[in-house]
Nucleic acid binder design. Structure first.
Lengths: 126, 126
DNA sequence: TAGTCTTGATTACAGCCGTAGTCAATGGCC
DNA sequence: GGCCATTGACTACGGCTGTAATCAAGACTA
């Protein structure tokens, strides 16, 4: 698992289905994406090829076709994308981001409880 | 203040200095960006022009030059970018995002307290 | 065996992005 | 009044993105 390169919006959709279950063939991916992304299978193929080229997916030959599989963990990509997002929008500081999202998200009671519990256990900085 | 269009990474840097203080001329913006963004003033001009074209900045003539000023609030842009980010990475659900960032950010005692307080007051969904 | 379906490879193409360069007008300095 | 610095307008250009189309080769089918 190597460091994640930049993954575009459309590519994220593809990666999400592959993180969820892998390996999958191109057409299985297209099918899994299904109605949500109104793409032809041509388009899905293109995205898969780009992701392979970027090193985010790896392939294994299965007869004449490929089985696609993540080569970078979801966690690593989420973390990288998160850092970039926080840097861009919140100038690198996570706390305003948390305030922003805590304030404006609708959370279930369970989610609120869990967040509070994690915060409670959290080691303060400095 | 209209709905925010897509703002690129470099454009965010420009917008941040203008949200912080406005109006500013192009060269003031370039100066405020200063060493952080190693751009020529040509580049800053281009970015300003693009932002004006997108409607994120408005201009006012001041003699032969422009004074640039945000036409969209920072809050609106942050919210839009946040929605897009959550959709892309967390499949639209804010709670995993919060868990992710709460777990991996280093927060001061005060920040932790504030988050807990906000969570406490928060109305659960459903 | 000839046609058809599937699948990867290659190519397309417009629009956005990062990063400028060039040009022309304008205002200030000498 | 003429030259220089500043500034906006326009142009550039390669790379990434979204969204495919075309091509070619193997696999399946009648």
């Amino acid at each position: 698992m190597k460091a994640p390169p930049r993954i575009s919006e459309a590519e994220w959709k593809v990666m999400r289905v592959l993180w969820e279950e892998h390996p999958r063939t191109a057409s299985q991916v297209a099918q899994a994406l299904g109605p949500q992304a109104a793409w032809t299978d041509r388009t899905v193929k293109t995205l898969l090829a780009r992701l392979v080229k970027k090193g985010v997916l790896s392939t294994e030959s299965d007869g004449k076709r490929y089985l696609y599989e993540p080569a970078v963990s979801r966690e690593a990509c989420v973390a990288a994308e998160g850092r970039s997002f926080v840097a861009r929008v919140f100038d690198g500081s996570a706390s305003p981001l948390l305030l922003h999202f805590v304030k404006r998200s609708r959370l279930t009671r369970g989610e609120i409880e869990e967040l509070r519990r994690i915060l409670e256990e959290k080691e303060p900085r400095g």
